[in-house]
Design a protein around this nucleic acid. Structure first.
Lengths: 218, 218
DNA sequence: TCCAATATTTAGGTTAGTCTAAATATTTTT
DNA sequence: AAAAATATTTAGACTAACCTAAATATTGGA
């Protein structure tokens, strides 16, 4: 139904809309997709004709409900495949993106239905990002930075902000991964460092670390 | 490295070479790929320039060793994905082809290595076709038609020739699937029909049926 | 062998998606 | 509020992969 290029545009526009509520500019799309603004104009006009987004010359664009549906389906597929790669094929969470980028374009409803079931209908991908359901609905989660938690508060790791190998290796060493529960035992006022409980261990982390771990509270 | 179209041409040429030893004609490729001969000529010339096949105008083409390597890798991926779909996602063996057709073009050596291991390094796909190894080597198997077996001979079902739903359903009903062991108990001379043992059952099959089941003998 | 049928290639055109360069809008600065 | 800077669009071109129609080669039969 939609070409690979069209799907990628819709996906990117969806992400940009999430990041900064409101219309998305031509240049923003071009930069994110590593393409030229003139190419973006072409494609945006084409997708607008297909009613996938609403667009006024010089005024940026927004996804229509139709466009949003396509975008979330692509994102759903991307994230399900990431779960597959990590859970089943034992990839590291920092090396799945490019492969998922390809797998997300495979067309087969049955495949996705089955894959989802096979993986146990996960709610989050290996980076902690929520997986849209078959209707494109994304559960609105209470995602905060670990650094925002107060003393005694608990949270579940649902993702990271920084994704360098160094950082991920640090987390591995501390046994922090998606789904890891943690509690703030103490917080130092002057530098924002904290002592946290993770499993049976307690240890010190700097503010920098705490600002790069997303936790879900409930 | 190679485009989707290029990979598909190489794969098709490989299959055609197997089927009828010797060079492959432009028209044969066009027919198999449901495209026009003129398009084939274009692509064949392009692939010849890339040293993927050797080609003399009006004389047909053959894969070079480089082309063979690409082709077998694509086929390897196709067949591994088919195993995944059937073994893990519980697809029926007659509905995996189109999806595998898409999955086979995903580029990632690590993905294939891991997938292969995850599936237990299978030797055959769900249709009984052999899966090339990482170097493109295809184990030369003693594959015969069931109809070629003599009385008392045993074989393991490794595939089918006919792939219509009707036929596959017939096989299901008789509990014949890939890996099913069978033995010829008796053979009728005048019409080629036979009585075979499958598991605990013995039953009659016509020559037509026997001519559409591949078995491996050893 | 030579002609007709068939196979193959060439020539020229189309579409999707990209690009550069130039034109035009919008926004920011003064 | 006009000029300068920036953002966006338009115009025209390119490539990959396809197509149709016409030209050319090969092959098989009388």
């Amino acid at each position: 139904m939609f070409s690979l290029a069209e799907e990628n545009y819709l996906k990117t526009i969806y992400h940009l809309e999430q990041e900064s509520k409101g219309g998305v500019s031509t240049n923003a799309i071009a930069e994110r997709m590593e393409t030229k603004p003139s190419s973006v104009t072409d494609m945006v006009q084409k997708l607008a004709e297909k009613k996938m987004l609403s667009y006024k010359k010089y005024k940026g664009t927004t996804l229509t409900s139709g466009g949003k549906k396509i975008a979330t389906q692509v994102i759903r597929k991307h994230r399900l495949w990431e779960v597959f790669l990590v859970d089943k094929l034992k990839f590291h969470w920092d090396e799945v993106h490019e492969v998922a980028e390809q797998l997300e374009h495979v067309q087969s409803d049955k495949l996705i239905t089955r894959l989802d079931a096979y993986l146990g209908s996960p709610d989050f991908d290996p980076h902690g990002d929520p997986i849209p359901d078959k209707d494109g609905y994304v559960k609105p989660t209470e995602k905060k930075l670990l650094s925002e938690l107060k003393k005694k508060q608990r949270g579940v790791c649902v993702g990271v902000k920084e994704t360098s190998s160094e950082f991920l290796q640090y987390l591995d060493k501390k046994n922090i991964t998606i789904g890891t529960k943690m509690q703030v035992l103490g917080k130092e006022f002057f530098d924002g460092s904290m002592i946290i409980q993770v499993g049976k261990d307690q240890f010190f982390i700097s503010k920098i670390i705490a600002e790069n771990i997303y936790v879900q509270t409930n």
